[in-house]
Design a binder for these strands. Structure first.
Lengths: 197, 197
DNA sequence: TTGTTATCTTGACACCGTCAACATAACGCC
DNA sequence: GGCGTTATGTTGACGGTGTCAAGATAACAA
């Protein structure tokens, strides 16, 4: 029996996540509607509601997935660095993820979920864990290279704010010039490095 | 003849901007609809279209206004600093504006206009002028205190990215804890200062 | 086999931005 | 003052959105 004619889809949950990501990349968060999504999945408008409580829940699921991706990238990077930790590499990796997955990044850190919407408990857990990991990663990179009386955690957070700020400027379309962006990011790294001894 | 019964409003343009700002502060960008706005102004749904081409144009007008406000704050701050320029003060002032007018800040620098929407020519002009001013202001603050071969403009941009990143984290609801935020912002300032000699 | 549950459907509702067509008032020119 | 033009405001309509309610269908368990 061909899939197209079956009453039950069979794998709608995953299909929805997949198609949602595709739609996200094609049209952005604001172009992602449940109705379009349902149509792409070959299913009626309200079918997705049997797999996600509402649109917010779907977006949270997407964000959770994205965190897993970024996590693995960061983790791989931190590991491969080994005893030659390099902040520049960390920043490059992070910026690359953000610029290559702008819509996912918006979901992960943007107001769509965190302010306008309501982050799922699961998303909160995953996100906070990731925040902690990035901070720890950055903290490890600056370990033992800070002036006394300087909290490594705070340095890590401030550094992350710098990187995040850059990401947002690019992602939100404020910085359009890619070359400019690269020069600024290099300077941002220099800024962070200058705080080390 | 009482205003309520007049066919022509008389001052709809300004009233719309005013009510839009109020609605913005109460319900956020995503809560601002032209229909609600029209109702608040005591006018029919489509009346606003005689004063703003579409919703995007209205948002751009709001953003333009907000830039004027932030501009005057920054300018006043830079002037009053005189020959005692202090980056910390600059950052505090900037953060204060952003946290006290989060929705305006979102419009000024957020994807709502710059990515999803289409910035008006006027907004572009005003915004780019402001960007330049902030950069120049920050550039002046670091003037003569940079290592050789360091572009003051790049430092200013990277510094601005740091501040902007902090603002976004707070505004978007990622950082909720205000105290945490303050500590991080202090560290951010220290980060920038550390790049100076 | 039969009842329960998961899944999917259509119908409906209240919003939204915006266009078209029409109504009213203000303004300028004779 | 009268009158056409323009600015402003109105209702009606269209397609889009998220989501609820009620019913249809299939899978699954007893």
């Amino acid at each position: 029996m061909p899939k197209a004619e079956r009453y039950h889809h069979g794998d709608l949950h995953d299909t929805l996540l997949q198609e949602a990501n595709a739609l996200l990349n094609e049209q952005g968060v604001e172009g992602l509607s449940l109705r379009k999504l349902a149509e792409r999945a070959g299913v009626s408008r309200t079918a997705p509601y049997h797999h996600f409580r509402d649109k917010n829940a779907l977006l949270c699921a997407l964000a959770t997935q994205a965190f897993a991706e970024l996590d693995s990238i960061i983790e791989r990077q931190l590991e491969s660095a080994g005893d030659h930790p390099d902040i520049q590499d960390f920043v490059i990796e992070y910026l690359e993820f953000a610029t290559e997955n702008p819509e996912q990044y918006e979901l992960m850190f943007g107001r769509t979920i965190w302010k306008s919407g309501t982050p799922t408990d699961e998303l909160k857990r995953v996100a906070y864990r990731s925040f902690r990991r990035y901070a720890e990663g950055l903290g490890a990179l600056v370990q033992g290279r800070l002036p006394a009386a300087t909290d490594p955690l705070r340095v890590a957070q401030a550094s992350w704010a710098t990187i995040h700020g850059l990401c947002r400027l690019v992602i939100d379309g404020v910085y359009v010039d890619r070359k400019d962006m690269q020069a600024v990011s290099q300077q941002a790294v220099a800024l962070i490095m200058a705080a080390l001894k």
